[in-house]
Nucleic acid binder design. Structure first.
Lengths: 90, 90
DNA sequence: AAAGTAATTAGAAAATCTTCTAAATAGGTT
DNA sequence: AACCTATTTAGAAGATTTTCTAATTACTTT
C-alpha cells in the first residue's frame, strides 16, 4: 500500500537516494550495479534502497540471486502535483 | 544567492515546513501568524523559517517589528523540473 | 528613556538518520 | 552437500535534525 507523502519527501531528501533514482532513469539495475556507482558498502546501499522501496519510488524484481530495481514514475507524478498546487496552478 | 538543490529538497522534507509553505500559498503571513497554526514555540518556528529562507523557498519583508514571509514559487518550479526530467519528460 | 511586543539566536536534550562491520539469508554452481 | 555470489538484516557509532528554554535583538509606543 502507498506510503505517506511525508515518507516520499523524506526519501527524496537524501542525495544518494536521488542519485540512485537518476541511475534508474535509464533502465532497471541490480542492487550490486547501483552500489558500484557509490563509494559505500552494499549494506548502506541496501538501506537506501529499502527507503526508496517503502516510499514506493522504486519497484524490485528478483531474478536468480539478483534484485533489480526500477523507477516508479507515478509517485514522482504525485509529488509534482503537490508542488504544482503549491505554486498555485488551479 | 541561490542555495543548492540538495538544501531545497531537505527543506521540503519536513512536514512542518511543508505546512508553512501551504499556509503561505494564500498570502504572506508574519512569523507570529504562522506560529499560531502550530503547537510549537516561536523559536522552533523561527528555526523552520530560517531553513525555508536559506532554501530560497520563502522571502521575508520587515514591517514595523513584524517579519512577513512570502512563498517563492520559482524555486518550487526548479524542483518540478528536476522531477519532470526524472520522470523522463524530454 | 523605559517598557512592551515580535522575532531571532544560543545552547542543550532528545530523536532521527546515515554509515559501518559482522552475521544471516537466498539462490546458483560444482 | 559444500561452496560461492548477491543481497539484506542486526546492532552500534557518529552525524544531523528537531525541539525546547532562556537570553538577546530590534523596533514601537508611552
Amino acid at each position: 500500500m502507498r506510503m505517506s507523502f511525508a515518507e516520499t519527501f523524506k526519501a527524496l531528501s537524501d542525495p544518494v537516494r536521488r542519485e540512485i533514482l537518476v541511475l534508474l532513469k535509464g533502465a532497471p539495475l541490480s542492487a550490486g550495479e547501483i552500489g558500484s556507482h557509490f563509494d559505500m558498502t552494499g549494506a548502506t546501499i541496501s538501506y537506501h534502497l529499502s527507503i526508496l522501496k517503502k516510499a514506493d519510488l522504486v519497484w524490485e524484481t528478483k531474478v536468480k540471486n539478483y534484485v533489480y530495481y526500477e523507477l516508479n514514475t507515478s509517485v514522482v507524478e504525485e509529488i509534482m502535483l503537490w508542488l504544482s498546487d503549491l505554486k498555485g496552478d488551479k
